[in-house]
Simulated scan of single mutants.
Amino acid sequence: MSNKSFTFSRFLKNILIMAGIGIIFVLFFFFIYLPSSTNHNETITVPELIGLTFDDLDEFVIKRDLRYEVVEDSGYSETSDPLSILSQNPKPGSKVKMNRKIYITLNAMVPPKVKMPNLINTDVQNAEDILNTNGLKLGSLTYEPNLANNAVLAQTMNGKAIEAGTSIFKGSSIDLVIGDGEGVQRFLAPNFIGKTLDDVKFQINASNLKLDVINFIQVDSVDVNTIYKQLPPAGSMIRSGSLIEIWVNGNDANNEVPDEAPEGDVKMEK
């Protein structure tokens, strides 16, 4: 049994010794042991994975002492190959510790489906914006006679009409039928020269045209009651409902203009 008596100085000395040992232990743990066990100051640059295929991941990730995990919600890009990498986290060039996990998003094998929007009666520019918003593409435009200028009359895909709400693959091309704003079909003016007035009236009615003015003028170059001039000229581009003016060799308007064509004004000259 020790005969040394207790003194305050001896007690304080022991406390200081114990505190010093504790400080040394803490410094050793945080500045020597912990850095060595966690590879302190040893980082890896995250490689560029976007665009690579899934089969190339081992070479670019595992061989660099990194790991990867595929995010469940796959994305889709029409311009990328199926199962190619669309995005990654952390981003390329980031500095990470060894064995860090990189989360990647793969391009889907099959495009997701979207609902076909309703484009009928919208203008072309608005229709294209709607298609882009829904992940669809504007295909060919076909113009048809219709008073609705630049408006969508029909929406088709692969030559068949497609109704709004139909499920189709994202990235599909939609063809549109557009109104030309004219509402009528254009065609070449018939040739009335050399025909009789009755024949011309019949032909005008059959062509959905309107007889505007009949000019009766005596000439020696054609037979009586024969057309020798017309406006618009034969072969010019006209549309349904256009007005036709004709010149007839004759001098008797009352006998040459039947009651069924009251819309044609009659002029007589000699």
Rank of each mutant, 00 (worst) to 15 (best):
1 M>V: 09
2 S>E: 15
5 S>V: 10
6 F>G: 03
13 K>C: 00
14 N>Q: 14
19 A>M: 13
22 G>W: 07
23 I>L: 13
31 F>M: 10
32 I>S: 05
32 I>V: 12
32 I>E: 03
33 Y>D: 03
34 L>D: 11
35 P>R: 12
35 P>E: 15
41 N>D: 15
42 E>Y: 13
42 E>H: 14
43 T>V: 14
44 I>E: 06
46 V>S: 02
46 V>P: 01
47 P>H: 06
54 F>Y: 12
55 D>T: 09
56 D>L: 10
58 D>P: 03
58 D>T: 13
59 E>M: 01
60 F>G: 00
68 Y>I: 08
69 E>G: 02
72 E>W: 02
73 D>L: 04
76 Y>H: 09
77 S>C: 09
77 S>Y: 05
78 E>I: 14
79 T>C: 00
80 S>E: 15
80 S>T: 12
88 Q>R: 10
89 N>G: 01
92 P>N: 11
93 G>T: 07
95 K>P: 04
101 K>M: 09
101 K>Q: 11
105 T>H: 00
105 T>D: 03
109 M>D: 12
110 V>D: 06
110 V>A: 01
110 V>Q: 07
112 P>V: 11
112 P>A: 08
112 P>W: 06
113 K>S: 14
114 V>R: 02
116 M>I: 09
117 P>T: 05
119 L>I: 04
120 I>A: 07
121 N>H: 09
125 Q>G: 04
127 A>E: 12
128 E>V: 12
128 E>I: 12
130 I>F: 11
134 N>F: 06
138 L>H: 03
138 L>K: 08
142 T>N: 10
146 N>K: 08
147 L>D: 13
149 N>S: 11
151 A>V: 13
155 Q>W: 04
162 I>T: 06
163 E>K: 14
168 I>Y: 01
168 I>H: 05
169 F>L: 12
170 K>F: 01
171 G>L: 08
171 G>K: 05
172 S>D: 07
178 I>A: 05
179 G>Y: 10
185 Q>N: 08
187 F>L: 08
188 L>H: 04
189 A>G: 03
194 G>E: 13
198 D>M: 06
200 V>H: 10
202 F>M: 05
203 Q>D: 15
205 N>Q: 14
208 N>P: 01
209 L>C: 01
212 D>W: 05
213 V>W: 03
213 V>G: 01
214 I>H: 02
214 I>A: 06
215 N>L: 02
218 Q>L: 08
218 Q>Y: 02
220 D>N: 15
222 V>W: 06
223 D>T: 10
225 N>H: 04
228 Y>G: 06
229 K>M: 08
231 L>Q: 15
233 P>G: 02
233 P>T: 09
240 S>N: 09
243 L>M: 08
243 L>G: 01
246 I>R: 00
246 I>A: 01
247 W>A: 00
247 W>H: 00
247 W>K: 00
249 N>P: 05
254 N>A: 13
254 N>P: 01
254 N>Q: 14
255 N>P: 00
257 V>P: 00
258 P>R: 12
263 E>V: 05
265 D>Y: 03
267 K>A: 06
268 M>Q: 15
268 M>N: 14
268 M>L: 14
270 K>Y: 09
